[in-house]
Amino acid sequence: MPDALINIAGLHKAYQTAAGPFPVLKDVSLSIVAGEFVAIMGHSGSGKSTLMNILGCLDSATTGEYRLTGRNVAQLGKDELAHLRNGTIGFVFQGFNLLQRMTLLDNVALPLIYCGVEREERQVRALDLLSKVGLADKAQSLPNQISGGQQQRVAIARALVNRPSLILADEPTGNLDSHTSAEIMALFESLNRDGITIVLVTHEDDIARYAQRQIHFQDGRIVSDQVTPAKVTS
């Protein structure tokens, strides 16, 4: 597929343990086109988080090929990988991972420091994103002064601030109640409608239902890859 955002072919990943190599991903091939909303599902230990780390250029595959926007990630240096994480990928974590010492505004603006955006513009863009997630009035608050759902929205704002083409969300609703989860998923849906590709890792069916496509993992292999049934009817 020529215009695939993510293209994985024959990917293997094994961790070195005392008892020899332990395979986590076995011959995974996958293609995600720009604009898709994909849920990767599986039990813990199924390899979905490892895949996520590889997709996010935090980890590298043992063998196999991973192309992001057409570039072979294995051939990139550390700085180029950092640059991809900075500009092409936005991370959303289960535990929010905001820096506790910083105001929400500074948290959202942080990725912009690493690509050399001037202070004025950093502030403007961060504030813009904060208002997009409905937290502009809390710009000067610290993370521990707001709720978990709000923190996750800040984290999403941070993921978006450098206008990425791909959002990787690892169990983004894992620490949230169902009502807040629904809000966060609605936010992802609206981002997806704006054309941002979203890859979401979850083990909850009702969260996965927001995605257009569900990929199930088991023991490091893809066992199913299908369009979300609900989406077919709607």
């Binding site: 935090l58 994480r85 974590f93 990725p111 690493y114």
Partner: peptide, 16 residues
């Protein structure tokens, strides 16, 4: 350490 991990995830290079 965790802060460093977060910074790296959002695009900090080693030299940063």
């Amino acid at each position: 350490t965790r802060e460093i991990g977060i910074r790296m995830a959002i695009g900090a290079r080693q030299r940063d």
